[in-house]
Each structure stands twice: as C-alpha cells, then as structure tokens.
Amino acid sequence: METKTTAQKLKTLFFATLYLSAFTFGGGYVIISLLKNKFVDELKWISEEEMLDYVAIAQSAPGPIAVNGAIVIGYKICGIPGIVFAVLGAVIPPFVILTVISAFYNLFKTNPYIQGILAGMKSGVSAVIVSVVWDMAAGIVKKRDALLIAIMIIAFVLNYYLEVNVVLIILGTLVIGIARSLYARRETK
C-alpha cells in the first residue's frame, strides 16, 4: 500500500491541486486549508507539523501562496517532477476560467444567481479555514508549552489588530525560537 509508484503519486498530486485550485474562492489560505485536508488528513503523506512549516515557506517567499504551497508539497512528494505537476494543477483552473470570463465579463458581473452562490460560499470557505485552525491550534495547545501559546496569541493580535507584515512576524518568531534554543543548550552544559 505504501509503495505507490511515482506515476501514481504524480497523478494524485496533479488532480488534487487541479481540483482544489478550481474551488479556492477567497485567496491562498483557502487552498492551504484544503491541501492540509487532502495531504495531511486524507492521504497522510505529510505530517501536520511539516504542513505548518510548508505554510511558513509558502508565506515567506514571493508569489501567490496557492502556487507556493503547491510547489512545497509537490517537492516533498515527488521532487522536481512533483513541482511541475503540482504547479500545472494549481495554475490551469484560474487560467482557463479567466480566459473564458474575460470574454463574457459583463454577463458574469450582473448575474444575480452567480452573485448569490458566491455570497453563500463565503460562509463555507471561512468554516473550512476555522476548522483547519481548530485542529492545528489544538495540536499546539496539547504541547503545554507556555511560550508557544503566547506566540500564537501575540501573532494573532499583531497580524489581525495591528496589521503587522507577516514576513516580520515570521522572522520575529524564528529569532525567538533560535534564542531559546541557544539559551537552553548553554544551560545544559
């Protein structure tokens, strides 16, 4: 069961990113949440902790988060060929949809049915994100490490209320982690 061939993995990867990308209304974090659902919970190809590291990588590099997320996961699962298939999967749906829509834009913009569906989907999209955060936050609280819980709360306040740039938050927490690591190692000497 574990010995899936490379070709099968690439196929799964391509269709997973294609399918997810076609339904990610509302930005990069939605696809990140869906990728977590697929590759961590369903396929179990990636651990939850690794997934969070991948989100950080996707977030700190330039470019669309959905594409960056597809790249890290593609690389993890199949190396460079994995990247190619994952990126193609992530890019094809918006490419096709935008090509069609740019031709019929006026029709699309004024259609009340399409507007209604899109309005309703926002509730579902945010529920998916909240559910993923629920799992991830529970995993961190379970570690019973006060510093980690403090980082989670402070990062939320900085990001949501004070609108601090996410790259700064990422760098700051990395510095805190390194400082604690060096300090702990000196103590044990």
Partner: peptide, 22 residues
C-alpha cells in the same frame, strides 16, 4: 527549535485569513 516557535504564529495567520472572509 526555530520552526517550533514559528508554527503557532502560522496558525494565527491562517485564522486571520479566515476572519477576513468571515
């Protein structure tokens, strides 16, 4: 250790993205 400290911050960022839609 650096990545351990980073993960809780990432969780918060994902939550913020959800709230911006919700």
């Amino acid at each position: 250790d650096a990545l351990t400290a980073l993960r809780p911050a990432v969780v918060s960022m994902i939550l913020v993205a959800g709230l911006i839609i919700l």
